[in-house]
């Protein structure tokens, strides 16, 4: 009798394990970040840093597009601005606000450099990125 119970117990545990595995596979969906989030990885991976994530939505709540895209001269192109930390520290690009006066300063490395390592430069959910990037496997396939 105990052996039978143990067998069913093992069976149960195997079943639980299978379910957990199955859930893990079902949950393997594409990234669900906000529309327009920009991942900047021109130099980060090579420098051993996490890529920087720019949440567009956070900034558009607080600033007009014009502030960054006209006053600061940031081009409408992810990865097309050649931003590096030296320029930021000199007060260009992100550094115009991220200087400890308007927004957090550059010492808080990991607040911006918070992306998953290896994520390529892109605008999340961008139509042109979707169409021009290498074909993804169909949904549901690995």
């Amino acid at each position: 009798m105990p052996s039978l119970i143990r067998r069913t117990l093992i069976g149960r545990m195997l079943f639980v394990g299978t379910l957990v595995l199955a859930t893990a596979f079902v949950d393997a969906r594409p990234a669900m970040a906000e529309y327009g989030d920009v991942i900047m990885n021109n130099n980060s991976d090579a420098a051993g840093m996490r890529p920087a994530v720019f949440p567009h939505w956070f900034h558009r709540v607080r600033y007009s597009c014009k502030v960054c895209h006209a006053d600061l001269g940031i081009k409408f192109k992810a990865g097309g601005n050649n931003i590096d930390m030296l320029k930021i520290m000199d007060g260009q690009y992100c550094g115009a606000c991220h200087n400890g006066t308007i927004a957090w300063s550059v010492e808080n490395c990991n607040l911006c450099h918070s992306g998953k390592p290896g994520t390529p430069t892109q605008v999340h959910e961008s139509k042109s990125h979707e169409l021009l990037s290498p074909a993804k496997p169909p949904v549901g396939k690995k």
Partner: peptide, 19 residues
């Protein structure tokens, strides 16, 4: 997609990063 997930779950942020 699920909407408006917090950064730790959105798939592009590194959840192991404390910040």
């Amino acid at each position: 997609p699920k909407r408006h997930l917090p950064p730790t779950q959105d798939g592009i942020h590194d959840p192991t990063n404390d910040s």
